[in-house]
Design a protein around this nucleic acid. Structure first.
Lengths: 112, 112
DNA sequence: GGCTATGCCTTGTGTTGCGAGGGGTCAAGC
DNA sequence: GCTTGACCCCTCGCAACACAAGGCATAGCC
């Protein structure tokens, strides 16, 4: 469904503030109005991929609860990539919109 | 890029009038404002997939130029599927929009 | 003891867009 | 005559990737 757009979504979720994987899932769920409910098997590999690409950086932290968390932060390149993805996305939805835009031009009134 | 949305795009291209594969490519290119320039290796398998799924039907025709063409027509189920895809798409872009919607809420004014 | 929530991870699989290649016709240009 | 490009059909194989499934661990509640 969100093939190819996952990176953008994850980056967007981290644009506000750094967060750990589990929190990213919740943030995405929240911001999307409940539309996106990504499983861990989707998000964790994505975070690793983005870090390897230099768009995210991570560090281990320990919450007051004693839990170990890997917190991801958007890098400079990550922010640039996000802006980039966003522009591409904009053009994409406009193009798709164009596909619907005009029902047709064959059945329409051809008079004058 | 358009992973998962190809079907919708192809169906939309055929919503106006039946067309053969090559024409579908051109129609998509035209309606998308030049944004989509799909290669044959993408569109032909897609058309076959959609026909096998019962969303399209095809018949061979011969143009006045003598060329053999396989013309695809949207079936009843195809129209329903298109409307369906469109609704999903609408919800999808709204969800993505929500991801950007609010920059954040941490750096924003937290006063009162 | 069992269940749920939190938190991390990997492996395997199915889908799918698309590059590369292979048919063939016809017109225009060198 | 030969090449280039538009038109028109097709198939094979690769790579990317979302995600299901499974595994491990801690903590709180019933």
């Amino acid at each position: 469904m969100l093939k190819g757009h996952l990176d953008m979504i994850v980056l967007a979720a981290l644009a506000g503030a750094p967060a750990h994987g589990y929190a990213v899932i919740q943030e995405i769920h929240r911001r999307s109005g409940g539309a996106f409910d990504l499983p861990e098997g989707t998000i964790y590999p994505a975070l690793q991929r983005l870090e390897k690409a230099g768009l995210l950086s991570s560090r281990w932290t320990t919450a007051e609860s004693g839990r170990r968390r890997r917190v991801y932060t958007l890098t400079r390149r990550g922010r640039l990539a996000l802006a980039d993805h966003r522009a591409v996305w904009q053009r994409f939805i406009e193009a798709v919109g164009g596909m619907f835009g005009h029902a047709d031009h064959a059945t329409a009134r051809t008079d004058r």
